[in-house]
Structures are given as structure tokens and as C-alpha cells.
């Protein structure tokens, strides 16, 4: 059996979790797939049946309303053991990346992070994962009994596949926690995390000042994306927070569309975005290295091109 740790957001299963679930269904073949939910309320979990879950496991308890690495790891590891699952998948979201290695250590299981490909050979899992900031790919073979992988968002397809999906409640956790999320300070305002975004519009030093990022916000809104930044923009003191930074010391993103505006394409920036499906570069310097990577390049002044893009996108009524 393959278990998938799934996350809910506003009563809906996150897209990144649906990707992991769809991939689990594909890998499992005739074997069973279980979707595992943990929280104060797991309303919305039933939808997992539409994406291939034979079993929907819900660990619901008030104490699970706030995230605790150690308590969640106990709940998830207990479920893996109780169901005798041989594979555990989860999306490489901030929570997944925090939780799954801990579960792996608890179970003595191999853990492959942020995989972009998976296959089963008999009962052994093989994974493909980017290494050296996506400058190379490693094929990894598991030798442990339980095998755990986190899937990089926007890489695996979401596929509908209706199953009966019987729901079962898991026992409430009895253990106490050692650390817990107490509060959320700077809320990202309902905006999607960059690592999960399908469309990203990023600005670099070429934006000249922080206020000009409004141009990118406008374009992002018109095409259904979120705004990112290069380190030069974050470090410039323009009030751009570090959680918007894409690159080696920022976020590694994998959108279907990445639009780089006024970004030269330094190797450390590329490390964070080379996994994008389609890359667009807008830069006034035709020699900028970003053009080597871009599927579509516009040599021009971003202050002219970006507003035109926003205007045209609105006119065409393009939104994701």
C-alpha cells in the first residue's frame, strides 16, 4: 500500500498534494492507495477519492490544529506502521519538507527529497531528483523497507481517477509535543507560496526601486501569478522580503511559467528557477545570460514592456 500525506487549505486539498496522490495512484497499479490527513478538522478530505484514494485516513484532534513537527511525525509514522505501507509520499511544501524527513528517521526509512520522477521496480522505489541546485540529476534506489519521497510541486500531473474511498478515523495522538507553531506573524495575505505557484513574475535590480514592483503585481494579477525577486532586489533595501527571493539562497521554484524582469540570470538565481517549464526573459541587455535559458526573450525596457503585457493580458481575458 502507498500512503500519501495530504494537506488541506481552506477545506480543499492542495494542488501539490493532489499531484503526489495522482502519482501514488499511478505507481500503485492494482495496490491500494491511502490519503492521510492530519488536522483539527479534515473537512474536504473526501475529495481524495476522486484522485485515486481507496482509503481516506483522518487524524482529527484539536491539538493538531497547529503544526508540530514531532507530533505530526508521530501521527504519520504510526499510520504508516498500522497500515503496513511500503511507500509514503507527500508534496515538497514547507510542511512536507519539515515533516517527511522526521518521519523517515522515525521509521528508519530512506528519504528522497523533492523528486521529479518516480518508478516502482518490484516493490522497490526508484526516484529521480535534482542535485547541485538542479545542475545535475541523481537517480536514487531505496534499500529500506519503508520508502519515503517528497514530490516537487508542479512536476507531476493531477489525474482524476474515481475510487470508492472509504474514510476512517485515526486514533487521537496520545503523545505530547516538544515544539509547535505558536503564531503566524507576517501573513502572506492569502498569496500562494512561491514553491507551489504555477506562474511567477520575478523582478531584479532592473526594477530600480521597490515601488516599481507594483508593475509586476499588476501583471501577476492579470495572468494569475505571484511575484518573486532576485537577491539583488531583496538586498537593495526596497522592502522586498526574503521569502520572495528565488535562487540558491532563496526558494527553488518549479512553475509552468516564469517571467524574469530585469534579472541578469546569475548562476545562483538560475539555480532556483531552472526547473520552470517555460521561461520568459525581459531585459534591455541582449547579452544578459538569462536569454540563454529563456524560451521567449524580449530585449527591451521592462518599464515599457511589462505594462503592455498587463494591458494585453487584460484585453485577452487571460487568467489561470
Amino acid at each position: 500500500m502507498i500512503l500519501v500525506f495530504c494537506e488541506l487549505q481552506n477545506g480543499k486539498i492542495r494542488k501539490a498534494s493532489l499531484e503526489a496522490l495522482s502519482e501514488a495512484r499511478r505507481l500503485a497499479g492494482e495496490a491500494r492507495v491511502g490519503a492521510l490527513f492530519v488536522g483539527a478538522s479534515c473537512a474536504g478530505a473526501e475529495d481524495a477519492a476522486k484522485f485515486g484514494a481507496d482509503l481516506i485516513l483522518k487524524a482529527e484532534a484539536p491539538v493538531l490544529g497547529a503544526y508540530s513537527s514531532d507530533l505530526f511525525a508521530t501521527v504519520v509514522a504510526d499510520a504508516v506502521k498500522a497500515r503496513g505501507a511500503s511507500v509514503l509520499l507527500g508534496a515538497a511544501t514547507p510542511m512536507g519538507k519539515d515533516l517527511l524527513p522526521r518521519v523517515a528517521a522515525k521509521l528508519g526509512a530512506g528519504y528522497a527529497a523533492e523528486v521529479t520522477g518516480l518508478s516502482m521496480h518490484g516493490n522497490k522505489l526508484q526516484a529521480l531528483r535534482p542535485v547541485y541546485a538542479a545542475k545535475a540529476f541523481a537517480t536514487v534506489d531505496f534499500s529500506s523497507e519503508v520508502q519515503i519521497a517528497s514530490t516537487r510541486p508542479n512536476v507531476f500531473a493531477v489525474t482524476e481517477c474515481s475510487k470508492a474511498g472509504t474514510a476512517e478515523a485515526l486514533p487521537a495522538p496520545t503523545a505530547d509535543f516538544k515544539a509547535i507553531v505558536k503564531e503566524i506573524l507576517a501573513k502572506s495575505g492569502g498569496k500562494q507560496d512561491l514553491t507551489e505557484a504555477e506562474v511567477i513574475v520575478s523582478g531584479g535590480r532592473g526594477m530600480k526601486e521597490g515601488a516599481n514592483f507594483q508593475l509586476l503585481e499588476d501583471l501577476a494579477e492579470a495572468i494569475g501569478g505571484v511575484v518573486g525577486a532576485s537577491r539583488a532586489a531583496v538586498d537593495a533595501g526596497w522592502g522586498i522580503p526574503h521569502n520572495m527571493q528565488v535562487g540558491q539562497t532563496g526558494k527553488v521554484v518549479s512553475p509552468t511559467l516564469y517571467i524574469a524582469c530585469g534579472i541578469s540570470g546569475a548562476i545562483q538565481h538560475v539555480a532556483g528557477m531552472s526547473g520552470s517549464k517555460v521561461i520568459v526573459a525581459i531585459n534591455k541587455d541582449p547579452e544578459a545570460p538569462i536569454f540563454k535559458l529563456a524560451n521567449y526573450g524580449i530585449v527591451g525596457d521592462l518599464f515599457e514592456v511589462v505594462p503592455e503585457l498587463t494591458k494585453a493580458a487584460k484585453a485577452l481575458g487571460i487568467t489561470k
Binding site: 503544526y67 510542511m95 509547535i180 507553531v181 505558536k182 503566524i184 506573524l185 521569502n243
Partner: peptide, 11 residues
Amino acid sequence: EGDGGTEVVEG
């Protein structure tokens, strides 16, 4: 750096 923005973890 958590999901919803900056999270405070105490332990």
C-alpha cells in the same frame, strides 16, 4: 519561513 508567512515556533 513557513507556509503562511513567518511562523513562530516555540519549544
